[in-house]
């Protein structure tokens, strides 16, 4: 095979897939409601600097990603014995690039987010939500996973 053909194939491969290490998705901080009183709903705003959940995304400047969050409907009592509803609304999440002057963009965490990495190669996604424990909710620690899946283009 001529060298130019090999070069063309190699270039195509580079275009086809992000390089290993070029993309990154990681959970940074749990969405933490802290102490909740049974019978009293509690809300965490996505802008809460301590309690909101946080994911970190890295790709390439100008690249695009489609982001989907897999959200729980209930939190489960550690050790069993109960569940507690958790819900998310439009505006309970926002994405913020790391470039100076980046502006947060709110979105519905229950839907898809199409994001373009503008001015920087990485961004953070912040997540809030609300829990509505019933008055009879058993005391204890409750937890459930939140998964962010990003497809990079």
């Amino acid at each position: 095979m001529p060298r130019c053909v090999t070069f063309l194939l190699f270039t195509a491969c580079l275009l086809a897939r992000p390089l290993a290490g070029q993309t990154q998705v990681s959970g940074v901080r749990d969405l933490s409601f802290g102490i909740v009183i049974a019978g009293v709903p509690a809300t965490v705003a996505p802008g809460d600097p301590v309690k909101s959940g946080q994911f970190y995304l890295r790709y390439v400047t100008g690249g695009r990603a489609r982001v989907r969050l897999t959200l729980p409907a209930t939190l489960n009592r550690v050790g069993g014995g109960g569940t507690m509803p958790i819900s998310f609304r439009n505006g309970d999440a926002f994405v913020l690039g790391t470039a100076p002057g980046s502006v947060p963009s709110s979105f519905n965490p229950g839907g898809l987010l199409n994001y373009r990495f503008t001015g920087s190669a990485d961004a953070n996604i912040y997540l809030g939500g609300r829990v509505t424990p019933a008055a009879a909710t058993a005391s204890g620690n409750y937890t459930a996973p939140v998964v962010l899946t990003a497809t990079f283009f």
């Binding site: 990681s26 933490s32 409601f33 946080q54 009592r77 997540l127 204890g140 962010l148």
Partner: peptide, 9 residues
């Protein structure tokens, strides 16, 4: 990527 939603009732 994963995080947890958690609360203490």
């Amino acid at each position: 990527g994963n995080i947890n939603a958690k609360a203490t009732v």
